[in-house]
Write a protein that binds this DNA or RNA. Structure first.
Lengths: 290, 290
DNA sequence: GGGATCGATACCCGTGCGGTATCGCTGCCC
DNA sequence: GGGCAGCGATACCGCACGGGTATCGATCCC
């Protein structure tokens, strides 16, 4: 009795655990996984026995994570991403061998668009350039895309995006400007302070969705896209503080005023630390030479 | 016919593939895995079908990796390390909850010993210090230990160790010195150049084992440990270029002369990028204050 | 050309995953 | 407070799949 199973955890078990840990509900997790609830209960219990650690505290009404469970949730997600990345990158390497080479570059939709355009142009002019598929994504999604192999390289914006775990090169740093409806009183100023913008009556800062897709509480309108935000500002329903480089996208109905005490924004190009891809290396080199 | 299995790769399949890819021999790989050869062949074939990619080129006499196979070997190892790390860190988090907290610090055996001693002393004096288990390991092993969760934090030496994928803080930088037998002609000099040391007649530079445990070809003696190297130098069979801080360990039979054009060595403390451990944070903070 | 080596194939068996039915506990509501 | 609803655990079953043995077929070597 009391055996120690000495072979490792299977990804299936990790997927099951992550589902339960996210839902905190065996029934919903089972539904999400497309299996029935009893096998799920069994699998989790087996995982706990194998680890020799309680992962979930269950009463018959509620499920909560133990400390070990929280750790396994975080680390397990990373591990699953790594497995997915291995799978996807192997598939793409096979495609590349049959002639269809290419890189996937992830960038926030609506950000750094002229920098991105310049980069793509410059890289396309390189002698050994390959196809670059651009993957426009939401706020903060780039890291996930890099980690699970859906992208090979990404444009990130410090300090908003975290570059932890990636290799990076800085491309440019921008000050930030307040974007306001044309004709707003502040428009005449040569510069403003953060405090003047964040507390404008009737022009709240918008709320962006978190990584889980939900919005924080607060007064501002909920926005999901860059264009949507600009339209809201033009309508006089919001204002925002954005990197200086966004000026190129502002129409006549919007005005920008530099914010002196806003943190500067650094655009970096990032890639997974052990990337051996010649195409990624070329893209990075081109980017640093812009 | 021609089904697409849309659920992910299992770690068992990855372990099997890595074994075959490393051995390039189904029989030996099966033996290493403790299973028979036919199920292994089947598993690999199934993995290839699932990925839709050839991973191995087999004739009945030889097995070689395809491009996709090389990618999957590299990425698969990383993924397996991540899964192992998740497993180990969850186990240790469970232990921590039952009172036995602690951090594992990895350091090269024989390197930075006084820095390490100072760090351990200083950290032990902190109010919320926990037990620090020191894991002395071979050259370049620290990265693996951090990646698969056997260590929580490590001391690395740039540019010899790669810090890719970790968060780091620099602790100190040293020049390098040539370590020679006492009485050697160069001993009288106040400084030397790289070229003068690397080509000394009868005193070749030693060869260190690579990550796979094999030695590169060359004239120098094979060494595996720091102490072994110093003894060889004292015997007049080798010389070496080492960080300045090694002087503390040199006995009277060895002499050190600064090498002006050698790259400086930076000692850094490194930890996995998403570590949420209070103990690691404390250790890092203590280290940076030394 | 015969033997040795090695991967693939054929076939069988047992484990274990996933399913359905049901129990037992808990909180809730009239 | 008793009945009910919700949820996780347990019991049991069937089958798919992982692993084993035996054997084939190809290739290299002497």
């Amino acid at each position: 009795m009391g055996f120690e199973y000495r072979d490792g955890v299977e990804t299936r078990e990790l997927r099951y655990f992550v589902a339960v840990a996210e839902e905190l509900h065996f029934g919903r997790a089972a539904q999400r996984l497309g299996i029935a609830q009893p096998p799920l209960s069994r699998a989790i219990r087996q995982l706990e026995r194998r680890l020799g650690a309680a992962l979930l505290e269950r009463t018959s009404r509620t499920v909560t994570l133990t400390d070990a469970g929280s750790v396994l949730l975080r680390e397990g997600r990373a591990a699953l991403d790594a497995v997915e990345a291995a799978e996807r990158r192997a598939r793409r390497a096979a495609l590349a061998a049959t002639g269809h080479a290419g890189v996937v570059l992830a960038a926030k939709a609506g950000a750094s668009s002229e920098l991105l355009a310049k980069l793509l142009d410059a890289y396309a002019a390189e002698p050994d350039a390959v196809t670059v598929d651009v993957l426009l994504c939401g706020i903060g999604e780039q890291e996930r895309l890099l980690r699970d192999g859906r992208a090979d390289v990404a444009l990130l914006h410090r300090p908003f995006d975290t570059t932890a775990g990636f290799d990076t090169e800085e491309l440019r740093t921008d000050g930030q400007v307040a974007v306001l409806p044309a004709g707003h009183p502040l428009t005449g100023r040569t510069h403003v302070q953060m405090a003047e913008v964040t507390a404008l009556p009737g022009l709240p800062m918008p709320r962006w969705p978190g990584l889980d897709g939900t919005y924080p509480d607060g007064p501002g309108p909920q926005v999901r896209e860059h264009a949507q935000l600009l339209q809201l500002i033009a309508l006089g329903r919001a204002c925002a503080i954005l990197p200086d480089s966004c000026r190129a996208q502002l129409g006549g109905d919007l005005a920008a005023v530099p914010v002196l005490d806003a943190p500067t924004v650094t655009t970096v190009i990032a890639w997974p630390p052990h990337s051996r891809s010649r195409a990624v290396a070329g893209l990075v080199q081109t980017a640093t030479r812009l």
